[in-house]
Design a protein around this nucleic acid. Sequence first.
DNA 1: AATGCGTGGGA
DNA 2: TTCCCAAGCAT
Length: 298
Amino acid sequence: MRKQMLLSVHGSILSWYKQHGRSFPWRRTRDPYRILLSEIMLQQTQASRVEEKYPLFLKRFPTLASLSRAAKHSVVRAWRGMGYNNRAVRLQQLAKDVMRNHNGKLPRAVDELDLLPGIGKYTSHAIACFAFGQPVPAVDTNVRRVLSRLFPLASKRRDIWDIAQEAVPPRRAYDWNQALFDFGATICTQRNPKCDICPVKRYCPSAFRINGKIAKPAKREPARDGIPNRIYRGRIVEVLRNLKGNRALSLSTLGKRIKSNYRLRDSAWLRKLLQQLERDRLVSLTNGSSAFLVRLAK
DNA sequence: AATGCGTGGGA
DNA sequence: TTCCCAAGCAT
């Protein structure tokens, strides 16, 4: 890609960000734990929701150490409203791993971060940059979209991470990465991008050329009575969260609380969901004297 | 590598 | 109302 164009794009987007960038609590800290928490919460989750839950979670678990010591069900309870509950389980496992194997400090190397549960390529790079100041890109869905529109030819024949790495201005990696998030989320949106007010439209080969249609996946996710299993899973965890003192529920009672018209013929289906949740370490299953019991995993 | 995994606000 | 979506990860 052209060096000259890059310089212009840097200036335009960074100055746009200075004027229009949003202010979030995780942009006002470099505490690795706080950066980590924000990045996990932001996985597939709107910033507006994270903005609401993030301070509450931090109040409950102010440090990685306190998180590592907590009962798991209390972590899952603090995750209420966030969705993708596996993230809460992995986050606490990460806290335990770091306390045990890294002397309580998050590693700063991307390669080591990558080995921790719940952390993939995006999150490891985000932490390396936002917590430890490294000049690395953080390619999320926004960044991927913005770069592929600005550099359509290059992005077809090269890995987007390589392009992103070259596009990072080494002295301003933090602001650049954050700027691309806000720019992608508010101007260079997936559908109907606002090219008319785009600060880099004069450099962009894709300007005014994006049609808004996205092909949605043909395959249907597993469901029962038209409702995806994923939704029932969420209901199960939410019902268990609301039990005082992490009490247990019988299979049939639980069934009636998560599905209208729950019948005996649903029990095999429900048991399968519960076994998946058990495998994910979100719930624990025990055999009571007269019934099969379910509670949040300890 | 295709699939599964939540939630609540907005179109 | 119904549908779509939003800072990925693990298998």
